[in-house]
Design a protein around this nucleic acid. Structure first.
Lengths: 284, 284
DNA sequence: CACAGAAGTATCGATTATCGATATTTAAAA
DNA sequence: TTTTAAATATCGATAATCGATACTTCTGTG
């Protein structure tokens, strides 16, 4: 008959922009399935809208951000506050996330075999080198940090587990990409915004692909001040059962104190050794 | 007319057990409000059910855990998977949390002024002492860790930001409680399970209250192997605008290597100094 | 290898819970 | 105080969620 999915869908959900280049595949069919629960999607979307909103969000702001009607937003905030995921400042009536959201997030880490298995190796690497060591997992066209052991002397950035960074400008991301087939590497870069976070960020696709390719032979990927200033980062992929990366270990030093060659010579073998050890966990 | 809220409510939501003694206040009226969105609550409840479920959960298991019908659970998993919060193992068809939940959870930390402000002081304390330092916030009758700087030499437990520990058996919790009026202290202990996590856990209400009281005078609360084995922990409250704690800083050392008195003498003043400095952030 | 049983998936009409509009109240700004 | 905007409460319509059930796929057992 009509055959067209031309339903107006003015209910706000559906665009889901700002997803940072994740889900490259269109999921429009899924949201139109009779199984898809819109109310749930709206509530989660609302929670996600609190990213970088230090001062909290008012009801109308939330309605605008999510594209809901004020009524819908009202029901959403009421429910989320009842459940303890949001708190409302009684004076300003602005909503903020409550610690309860952390608990949900933490369940991911608490259930994560890779984190469990890798932690002793990360700790050891941190102890031997005295430098900051991270464990990251692939997350769409980004990496997400799931474990972290900081250097005591110099800290380049106060960044928490859960932080998301694009693959293309992170050493871990490049190390992970290096285990993917070329076509997938290109798809990742296409889905990325290739934003220049610093004046050293490489945004040229070919240059990035060459860097990734070189990691294939050396085993170590690196970035120099491409995301955090004064940060020189080396990474090595953790290989899963299918031969592709399930994560990466990276080590960061201040670029003001280290040259790339010195850092590679000093830390490269140790990072590789740790990543190799963790790669033996083939439970994927 | 009938006036009775005697609706059967067999849809599963409503008990919300396992909430670890949080929300002591009954919220039954809220869930019966016409504003309350049950679908949203069910979906979040499902996400919460993944706590300590390393192997993932099948559809029927989720239906049982949440008390939903299989149909409801099916719609829920479908929606959560479409949105990227769950992944389904194509082989076992069990669902697991995906890293996306982390992102929601850690927006809380990213927006947290206290974490931002405290981090340099925590880092400094970690650097000067070489020991593990944490920042915790009150969370119902528990504390939740929101920032962490680990010792490089000895790590008592691989515990991540987001971890929740009962107030009654954590040094941070006792330090926080010490700033509350007696009545509230008792309410917290009543809401707690007073479970003995180790053979040293104090489960006697009066003993705990006395420990809390002594912190009021000394400024430092402590626990010795009451939650983690081989852990001696000292904590000092961070005071907010209203005079009550908005968090606590704690420092952990192996109890096998330190006596309480030595640790208090060595670290007590430094912890207090850090907590005092952070307390100057009176934005609550 | 075939069978049985259980879990996963798809479909469907009934009805209830969600919907947007709007009225009312409260707070902030002029 | 007056004005304006945001927050909260209310309500009938109806579309989206509901549970049941049929169907399919997987798993393990004899």
């Amino acid at each position: 008959m009509d055959g067209q999915a031309s339903k107006p869908r003015l209910d706000g959900r559906g665009s889901r922009a700002g997803d940072q280049g994740l889900d490259a595949v269109s999921k429009d069919d899924e949201v139109n399935s009779p199984l898809f629960n819109n109310s749930l999607a709206k509530g989660l979307d609302m929670l996600a809208k609190f990213r970088n909103q230090r001062n909290g969000l008012s009801l109308v702001e939330l309605a605008e951000l999510t594209g809901m009607t004020k009524s819908s937003a009202q029901r959403c905030t009421f429910t989320l506050e009842s459940l303890g995921y949001l708190t409302k400042d009684p004076k300003t009536r602005k909503y903020k996330l409550s610690p309860k959201v952390l608990e949900i997030g933490f369940n991911y880490i608490g259930n994560n075999m890779l984190v469990d298995f890798a932690n002793p190796y990360l700790h050891n690497l941190n102890k031997e080198t005295g430098e900051t060591v991270n464990l990251a997992e692939p997350y769409g066209s980004n990496v997400i940090y799931v474990s972290r052991f900081q250097s005591m002397s110099h800290i380049v950035a106060y960044m928490s587990v859960g932080t998301v960074i694009p693959m293309h400008c992170s050493s871990s991301g490049r190390a992970i990409m290096s285990t993917y087939p070329r076509e997938q590497q290109e798809r990742i870069l296409d889905a990325s915004h290739l934003h220049a976070y610093t004046d050293k960020t490489v945004t040229d696709t070919d240059t990035i692909l060459r860097a990734v390719e070189s990691c294939r032979t050396t085993g170590i990927a690196y970035t120099i001040e491409e995301y955090f200033p004064d940060d020189l980062s080396l990474a090595c992929a953790i290989i899963g059962a299918n031969g592709q990366a399930i994560g990466a270990i990276n080590l960061s030093v201040p670029s003001s104190r280290w040259t790339l060659d010195d850092a590679l010579a000093r830390f490269g073998p140790q990072i590789k050794q740790a990543a190799f050890a963790v790669s033996s966990l083939k439970t994927l």
